[in-house]
Amino acid sequence: MTTPEQKPASLVRFEKARAEHTERMKTYNGICADIARCEKEQQAAIEAGKEAESNWRTRFRSLRGSLTDELRAEHSQRIASRELADEFGGLLKELALDKQESMLKCCDSGKEYVESHQEAFTGFADAHWQSALRNVSPSLLWAIKLRLRREELSPTFAGDDRDRIKDVAGLVGDALTRAAAALPDSVLKEAPLLEIIGLHRPALTGIDMKLYGNPAYRMKFVKALQQERAALQEDSQK
């Protein structure tokens, strides 16, 4: 089994990037859950406030303005419900900005995740390529040598200016590539490191791809976010 000391630097980077992106997405999803909960609580407070308002006005009129202790308590309750709804409104504005900032961070970690995967997979593939070239079958080399000689004696390709080495290289490359493509993907999963890296680009589920892939939009987004945060802080200090 591969130990941490044996892991290529690209794989270490990839695992770190994957873990960081996973944590950032958890944070983002947590904020989304908080927003959903607060919206539900705010709506409940608004409905409670409307009901308390209606009941209080009805009782206030029926008692001809006589403020009993019970009526005073109901008055305090309706004000409290209204204030609670307002507090939720302010909190939701902050959470909306937190959500946007969190998504921005997720885009950063997602980019590192994808790029580190590309580096790790490329390094793995290149290492195996070089290993295969160093350990190529002597019988295959012998067969290629024979094919080169065959092209001298009985050319397969037309044209006096043909390059027999390039022609045979094309034949060999095509034959080997087709044979490799015919292998099932399951053979790739036999390599422990490749099981960690994965055959495909990481799926960035939940990521705002416009924000992820559009630098110009990203700059506008960051500027707008900073302005909104500053305005919200000013309002909170009033």
Score class of each variant (00 low, 15 high):
N55Q: 04
E39R: 09
K26H: 14
A36M: 01
I31W: 06
R24H: 02
K50M: 14
E23V: 07
N29L: 13
Q43G: 12
E20G: 00
E20S: 06
N29G: 03
K50D: 11
T22V: 05
G49T: 09
E23S: 10
T22M: 03
C32A: 13
K40W: 00
W56P: 02
R18P: 04
C38E: 07
A33H: 02
Q43F: 06
A48K: 06
E20H: 03
R59F: 02
C38G: 03
W56Q: 03
A17V: 02
E53D: 15
A17F: 09
R59P: 00
M25W: 06
E23Y: 06
Y28N: 15
A36H: 07
Y28A: 15
G49N: 08
A48D: 04
N55F: 01
A52P: 02
I31R: 13
W56F: 13
A45N: 14
W56M: 02
E51Y: 06
G49M: 05
A33K: 00
M25T: 11
C38Q: 02
K50Q: 12
W56K: 01
N29V: 06
A33I: 00
E47V: 05
T27G: 08
E23Q: 14
R37N: 09
R24V: 00
R24E: 04
C38P: 01
R37A: 14
T22Q: 12
K26W: 04
Q43E: 09
W56R: 04
A36P: 00
R57Q: 08
R18W: 10
G49A: 12
C32S: 13
R18N: 08
R57W: 10
I46F: 05
A19V: 13
Q42N: 10
N55W: 00
A52I: 00
S54P: 01
A33V: 00
E41K: 10
A36L: 03
R59G: 00
E39T: 01
S54W: 11
E39N: 04
R37M: 12
E53Q: 15
C38F: 07
G49S: 12
G49I: 03
G30V: 07
R57S: 11
T27F: 14
E23K: 15
